[in-house]
């Protein structure tokens, strides 16, 4: 196994997990005050509408797309058997990709041009924007030039990722992938590993509990919450 393959596809994912888990639990429990989505809507409202909405919806749908291909590769392959269905899936994914890109560009423009927003941009936010740029560009490149991602993800990447999670990493198939795809994968690991140290932390606190919580909350000093 060549050195690079080992570093990027064996060491990096484990480093990422090792960085993600303890640090985010620690941050959540000890520094709750610093866990926030850090919304800047109060300072700028209009560009945010055109940036944040397509960006978030696009990237979330893409995330779930990747997740589905990872969790149920067989069903994805079965779906892709009919070319029409494959095209539908690929076109949908690609359009989510462009939605993300457009939103992202507007958000970058907003951060650079609106002084109020520049003032609440930290060094870590610069990192966030850079890594997102890498992810979006390599992702779109992959989608456009290495067809058909939804099929080969299921046959190449799903086994690799499973092998990582099973602690028996098998990188043979991954190291043979084009360099753009490799960058996409490796930078995804970096992104995951950096969650607790950046505003990415807000992924982990998405308020799912709200859906089954009662609307009103009363807290007593002495009694159990009623």
């Amino acid at each position: 196994m060549e050195m690079n393959g080992f570093f990027f596809f064996v060491l990096l994912p484990y480093l990422a997990l090792f960085s993600l888990l303890p640090a985010s639990i620690y941050k959540y429990r000890v520094h709750g005050f610093r866990v926030s989505s850090l919304s800047s809507q109060l300072l700028e409202n209009k560009l945010l509408f055109f940036g944040s909405r397509p960006f978030h919806w696009g990237i979330i749908l893409l995330f779930f797309g990747h997740l589905i291909a990872f969790l149920i590769p067989a069903s994805v392959l079965a779906w892709n058997e009919k070319p029409v269905r494959l095209y539908i899936l690929e076109v949908a994914a690609l359009s989510f990709g462009f939605m993300t890109l457009i939103g992202f560009l507007i958000l970058v423009y907003r951060r650079l041009r609106v002084k109020r927003i520049r003032l609440v941009t930290s060094r870590m936010d610069v990192f966030v924007f850079l890594i997102l740029a890498v992810q979006i560009v390599t992702g779109l490149y992959t989608a456009l030039f290495f067809r058909w991602g939804s099929s080969w993800f299921a046959t190449v990447l799903t086994p690799y990722l499973k092998s990582v999670f099973a602690f028996r990493p098998d990188v043979a198939a991954v190291t043979a992938l084009p360099v753009m795809v490799k960058i996409h994968i490796a930078s995804a690991f970096v992104l995951v590993g950096m969650i607790p140290y950046t505003r990415f932390m807000h992924f982990l606190v998405y308020p799912f509990v709200y859906f089954w919580r009662r609307y009103q909350i009363v807290i007593w000093n002495k009694r159990e919450s009623a």
Partner: peptide
């Protein structure tokens, strides 16, 4: 405000 907070961060004190 309490009902709208998705995080459940806002609360009314019982006492």
């Amino acid at each position: 405000c309490v009902a709208a907070c998705p995080s459940g961060a806002i609360y009314k004190r019982g006492e």
